[in-house]
Nucleic acid binder design. Structure first.
Lengths: 119, 119
DNA sequence: TATTTCAGGTATACTATTTATACCTGTTGG
DNA sequence: CCAACAGGTATAAATAGTATACCTGAAATA
């Protein structure tokens, strides 16, 4: 972010070099901030989880949503999909190294959310 | 989160006590994860900023979006709106203590986003 | 003086994302 | 045989976000 702000002595601030593309925070949020994405990643923190279990863990999200999010995260290299069995089909999803790198942020968010009793 | 997961020896995990409401991470994301909300808060980190400057700082967001986000954040006690002048009207927005409490998370997100070159 | 510019928004219409609900193929348990 | 589970997909409706134009009033510009 090269944009800056200058103060004019009245407690006001004026922008100097507005950023015309989404800034780093905005870009980050578009990856882990989408609805359900954060909890999805967080629920994978302890290892591989199956599709329907993720669906149950994220009470409220539909299968379609879970599916979309997982595909988007897989496309970004944050999640790995593995078929562990045909007949009966069984699939697990787990975090990659990049996926795991986001866990600290999510853990802090969880603590913040609980500390301030965010509803 | 009282939900847990158990392993069955095949690298798979099964959910034991699914959470039926959005968990803490999901609730937190719904406050600071909405589109533009994170950058909006972040751009207020150094003190009061005026409406139109926020609009310029967040290249891409419309005034309507900025307005909605600010109102939502104000309603949650994260942002304070102050009219500093009638005739010519002038308004500033600034973070409350609660608003400031989210800055660490956002700063970490920014660093993560830059480190892994998230686009 | 007339016109433009800025402040801080609101109104309208449109597009995109998310949700609810049902359904599909195949396997296993009763 | 029938129901339940696996891992999804299809369709439609509701919600969220975008683009564009406009409003009131004051001040700066031509």
């Amino acid at each position: 972010m090269k944009s800056r702000i200058e103060t004019d002595g009245y407690g006001r601030k004026k922008v100097i070099d507005a950023c015309m593309e989404p800034c780093a925070i905005e870009r980050g949020m578009r990856i882990i901030g989408g609805k359900w994405t954060g909890s999805l990643i967080y629920h994978l923190k302890d290892g591989p989880v199956r599709f329907n279990d993720l669906n149950r863990l994220l009470g409220g999200a539909t299968k379609k949503m879970i599916d979309q999010r997982l595909k988007a995260l897989e496309a970004r290299g944050m999640v790995l999909r593995t078929v562990i069995n045909d007949r009966p089909i069984a699939v697990t999803y787990e975090l990659t190294e990049l996926g795991r790198s986001a866990l600290d942020i999510l853990e802090d968010l969880r603590l913040w959310s609980e500390k301030y009793d965010i509803r």
